[in-house]
Amino acid sequence: MSDLPDAARQGPKPTGRLEEAEVVAPSRWKTIWDADISYSFRQSPVAMGAAFVTLVMVLAAVFAPLVATTNPFDPSSLNLMNGFSAPGVPNAFTGETFFLGTDDQGRDVWSTILYGLRISLFVGAMAVAFAMILGITLGLLAGYLGGWTETIIMRVADVQLTFPSILVALLIFGVARGVIPIEYRDQMAIWVLIIAIGLSDWVQFARVVRGATLVEKNKEYVQAARLIGRKPGAIMLRHILPNVLSPVLVIATISLALAIIAEATLSFLGVGAPPTQPSLGTLIRIGQDFLFSGEWWILFFPACTLLALALSVNLLGDWLRDALNPRLR
């Protein structure tokens, strides 16, 4: 230790570059491809299959007017004579063939499914978005501010959690029916549905966000921001929010599947989408009237679509939860 050159003894001044800092910046595409999450996606056939099915359904719903053979809600395109055509069998009166058959009014089942999918996906996505915004906001406020704000928000959440969400939705739906004048009812039905499902679903977002916020707010980067005089709103939005989003993403996906089913259930019970704008649930309700008279396809195909959609979105959510959970990796 005695014969060291002077430079080594003193050590260089820590200015200038450190070798270790040289991380070559890869292209954006490469970064995404290499990320753990996309790797785990590529490793999971179930996730890829589910994503494929979901994607196809979303595209089919968005481009329904292009993919559908008829517009089932345009009365002029309907021919009552086409009613009850079996799938793939030429109609006895008109000779037209419908590969998924037609319903009692001669509507092409394939086209009604496409349009029904549209309504189902729209209601589901909007309801989840509404629940998410509400839940995240309340969760952030409860977690960051604490005290009375937290007590009130979380007690309300607890109370709501003791009711089944479908009951909450029914209740809200009932209230809305009483409040909205009859001539607007059909127009507003979709929005009432969205709010009903959304309101019944915000609690889990709020809980998860509050939990994550409680963890994040004690981290030192939040203290550093408080120190320089950042306002609570800015800290919540700019600092904490980005760091609590990954669990929210998982819940949002699983909620989407649940919201689609909730919508179908409400519509099936006759309190959801009106017959003029039928969703998958409405189609199933209509279809079950004919199940026992032999026209199985009116029920069967919408039901299969609903099942496939809910299942694949749910599988995606399950995969996402596992992929984002570091403990399982």
Binding site: K219, E220, Y221, Q223, A224, A225, L227, I228, G229, R230, A234, H239, P242, N243
Partner: peptide, 29 residues
């Protein structure tokens, strides 16, 4: 007044770029 904390992993917001992190005391004002 400024402060430096113990845990080098918790004291930088993981979702922010270094530029935004280290200029925040100025940009916030």
């Amino acid at each position: 007044i400024q402060m430096i904390f113990q845990d080098p992993f918790a004291s930088l917001n993981p979702r922010w770029r270094v530029r935004d992190i280290i200029t925040e005391p100025v940009s916030a004002r």
